[in-house]
Design a protein around this nucleic acid. Sequence first.
DNA 1: CCACTGACGAGTG
DNA 2: GCACTCGCCAGTG
Length: 113
Amino acid sequence: MTARTSYQRIYAAVRRIPRGRVSTYGTIARVAGLAGQARQVGYALSALPTGTSVPWHRVINAQGRLSLERSASGAGITQRLRLVREGIVVDAGGRVSLEKFGWRTRESKRRAR
DNA sequence: CCACTGACGAGTG
DNA sequence: GCACTCGCCAGTG
């Protein structure tokens, strides 16, 4: 049954990110049980429809930068706006401090040592 | 089946 | 910090 697609697992993982926090594609992939497939996460998020309840804006890359910042698109502005609205500090270059706003999972805590 | 692309990551120089 | 390479996987032509 439920041959849950990778997308569904990814969306479920993204929904777990607390408000006011951000996570990375790699982390989401791991939480979704798709370790090493960060690319698939980005692919899945790009397929999200407008108005989705999935907080995709809380997902940024491992460098702490908004991936959409690069691609010239209105989505980049939306992401930035939503993050700031949650109290997250977004740098002029579209960067966020993962140290301060990164979602702390068991794995990340382990690394944070 | 092959080639290319893409909201990525980690490693190397 | 930047440029390049390789790994991973799905979608498209």
